[in-house]
């Protein structure tokens, strides 16, 4: 009914967070990692990694919003959500936002956290592999 509003709200928060972190990173400069033999590599900034989450949340909620338009649950006139005009439907809509909507935002975030962990281990592995490549 309006489950896409939950990941969209998260997308707004993470986009603001990304802008703040990005400006801080610009001030502090690029983070580098040095291996045991003195080889230096640039680390992917956290703001860029947060961008992955932003793109998934914005893209996913935009396409889901389209699905709601398709099913007539979102309309281009006030109150925009058809369920909002009826109290019983509104309660059902809020319940759906609290269950499916929260679960959607959570799964995207969990997958992103998994990607962070994988990228961290890949960075470590790449750093270890440098002396062998030499």
């Amino acid at each position: 009914m309006a489950c896409f509003l939950v990941p969209m709200t998260e997308a707004i928060v993470t986009t603001i967070a990304q802008k703040v972190i990005e400006s801080k990173e610009k001030k502090t400069g690029m983070k580098t990692v040095t291996s045991a033999d003195g080889f230096t590599m640039e680390k992917t900034p956290f703001s860029k990694k947060l961008g992955w989450l932003n793109k998934m949340l914005w893209g996913g909620s935009a396409l889901l919003a389209f699905e709601h338009v398709w099913h007539g649950e979102v309309v281009p006139y006030f109150p925009f959500l058809t369920a909002a005009s009826d109290p019983a439907d509104a309660a059902e809509m809020l319940h759906e936002m609290g269950t499916a909507g929260v679960a959607m935002a959570a799964i995207v975030t969990v997958v992103w956290i998994g990607m962070l962990l994988v990228s961290k281990s890949l960075e470590k592995r790449a750093l270890k592999a440098i002396p062998e490549a030499k």
Binding site: C3, F4, P7, W52, K55, M56, L57, W58, G59, G60, S61, A62, L63, L64, T99, A100, A103, M104, I107, V108, V111
Partner: peptide, 17 residues
């Protein structure tokens, strides 16, 4: 790619429900 993966994950939840 990010857009499609985001939507796929969200529709997966929809499918589970």
């Amino acid at each position: 790619s990010w857009m499609f993966w985001g939507a796929s994950l969200m529709w997966l939840i929809d499918a589970i429900f």
